[in-house]
Amino acid sequence: MKTYSAQAQERFSAFFMLFPTFFVIISFYFYPALYNLELSFTDMEFTQLRTGGDWVGFENYIEFFTSNDSFNVAFNTVFWLTAVSVTLRLFLGLLFALLLNSKMLSSLKLSTLSRLFLLVPWATPPVVSVIAWRWMLEPIGGPVNEFLLYTGIISEAISFTADLATVWPTIVTIMVWNTTPLVAVSLLASLQTIPDDQIEAASLDGATRWQQFRFVTLPYLMPTLSVLCLMSIIWTFNNFIYVWLTTLAGPGTYTNVMATEVYMKAFVDLRLGYSSAVGVSMAIILAAFGALYFRVVGLSRMQDKVG
């Protein structure tokens, strides 16, 4: 092997070490994504699995952007699925982190216990989270309805997943329950990096508790918060499982979101071409958030990290 220069050997090793990962990324991410783009310009249906569909240009996109249902789907995705749930998740996550970091809790020796409690939803798979909450909210025998009936707050059991007024809050609750611990734990980790003397100095200067939070604590948390926010948006926007398992996008199509629309158009209505066009539209919106994410996390910072 002496015939190769040291540099060539290094290049050789780098190539072989990266090759398997690269192969996986290209064959399972890039190639299917490009194929999906091609599909979105065809009218392919399930019966044409082998033959493929005909080229229809932008027809699928025009149909998606002009249909009446699409407005509902887009609104559900942007408002309920993403905006409401991400806001609540960050807000509650911050609240939990502050609570778990409070001196009172550690003086009562509750810190370890509360960290354990935080692990429970985090370790619960989404399917199980949906099952647990559907049972909690079940009209007959479900603990929430039992409690509300027993205390006399309501006189008739509420069917949370069937009632239009409660179905979205139910889905959001399940998502928030399952995903807040990650936010809380990450924020707690950054809270613990704040030097105590900073807070003390602020309180000596006569800062109120709110001012301490606003001008000392919050700036410290900002980098973590912004990364968590963007990551949550990206992961939530294309989330399929919570809506699908809780309501199957129903009642009717009331809670339909873009991800469930992609699935239903392909595997219920059997219109693979149209479904792909919905998917591509989603990907374009996500790419914008992805670009923002790379900006905030900073490709440069990643480069620092790799060396």
């Binding site: 990324i25 399972f28 991410y29 190639y31 299917p32 994504a33 194929y35 999906n36 599909l39 699995l49 990551m231 990206i234 992961w235 926007f237 294309n238 399929f240 991800a259 992609v262 699935y263 392909a266 693979l272 479904s275 792909s276 998917g279 591509v280 989603m282 990907a283 996500l286 992805g290 994410y293």
Partner: peptide
Amino acid sequence: GQLFPWIILINPIFI
């Protein structure tokens, strides 16, 4: 890849 929406890959991968 970490941020990639798998939902848009189900059609091509299934086909």
